[in-house]
Amino acid sequence: MNPLAAQLRQDTEAICYADGRKVGTPGHERARLHLLRRLEEIGCLPFAGDSLELPYHHRKQDFCNLVGRIPGQDSRLPPLLIGAHYDSVIPFPCADDNAAAVAIALQAGRMIRDKGGLRRDVVIAIFDAEEPPYFLGDAMGSQRFYADHVAGKVAIHAAVVMDLVGHDISVPGEMLGIIPGVGLLNLLLPGFGRKDFAVPHLRSGLFVTGSESHAELPPVLQSFGQPPDLRVIATQNCYIGDVSDHGVFRRNGVPYWFLSCGQWAHYHTPTDTPDRLNYDKMAAVTNYLVQMVEGLDGRELRGERKTEQITETIELEAEFLRSALGILHRPVMRWAGLKDVKTREDMDQFARALLGMGLGVL
């Protein structure tokens, strides 16, 4: 395990308590105090006021977002934001949801600091209360952060938000029938088609949505190409919806990317434990995230930002899909009933096929 992967594992395990991080519990309080120290250790300065803690109150309950900034060369410029939530949905470790993303945000902040910062400030936002019963409600941490500390006060240049980014992508055994010879296993092994398998070629997949939020985002993403250790699939938010903390930025016209590996077998279950995560993959996601933020830092992102203006990104999506699938592109297209993805209608059909298999769903 490389040093970055080892540090990611340490940061992840540090908040994966047996009793979880549900809002209002002792585990949630321990996580808050630990993450406050980690933000200080990586060199974050307060984003608002004189504290990294941004507490708020709703219906007799206390919450706390943890938000700091890595100073850039010109703090007068609109800052970039890296975001992830730290609460858990159940009283169990919830490693992938969402301790892994928090660990990646911390390490990305450290790496940016070690480089001497960027041109702009980089905000590291560790949001509270993303999980039900607070999801999309007035107590949701990202929504309160935006309403209390951004709207009418700060122009966020762009945001990159993460959720469920620590696991290998698995596919149903039924889908493996597209590979010559494998289809026989459906006949020889009862129940094979109902099991999920991490296929070496696809396990390193990472979904990136949001490039449609600004006309300059597709060329920025294209400039990176496929990273060596990931298979990036770019798609539009309409296929998954506002399933996490990126939603408030989308709805307010902030250019954004949302990173996720989608749901998996351990989503919202007691078995979402640190030992099941792929820390080498998380290291690759961290490096890619830093590259994304650096790319955004160098772009002015000119043009009016309106939530109803959507950039058509089908060429970007098709390019990344072909690159991510590689040698599996042709059999996967056949499985989806397509020759290729060239139009929005093609992508709609492909997305329906994935969703029908339970893939790509958050």
Rank of each mutant, 00 (worst) to 15 (best):
F47M: 07
K60Q: 14
F63N: 01
G72M: 13
P55C: 08
D62H: 12
I70W: 05
P55R: 09
L45P: 00
D50N: 14
G68W: 02
L52F: 06
Y56N: 09
S51H: 10
Q73Y: 04
H58E: 11
L45K: 13
D50Y: 01
L66E: 03
G49E: 10
S51V: 05
D62W: 04
G72R: 12
Q73W: 02
F63Q: 04
L52C: 06
K60Y: 08
A48E: 12
Y56P: 02
G68E: 08
N65W: 05
G43L: 09
K60L: 13
F63W: 03
G43F: 07
F63V: 02
S51E: 13
I70V: 15
Y56Q: 06
R59W: 00
E53G: 12
R59C: 01
D50R: 14
L52W: 05
Q73C: 10
L66Y: 03
Y56M: 08
P46K: 11
F47D: 02
F63M: 03
E53L: 14
L45A: 14
Y56L: 08
F47I: 07
H57P: 00
F47W: 06
E53F: 00
P46W: 11
H58S: 08
V67S: 05
G43V: 10
L52P: 03
G49R: 12
L66F: 06
L45Y: 00
S51T: 13
C64A: 10
L52V: 05
D50M: 03
F63K: 00
D50F: 01
C44H: 02
P46A: 13
Q61N: 06
K60E: 15
E53V: 07
V67G: 06
P55T: 10
C44Q: 04
R59Q: 14
P71D: 11
E53Q: 15
E53N: 02
L54R: 01
L54H: 10
P55K: 09
F63P: 01
G72V: 13
R69G: 00
Q61R: 15
Y56V: 10
D62N: 14
P55W: 11
H57D: 12
L52R: 06
G72C: 13
F47Y: 12
A48G: 01
F47L: 09
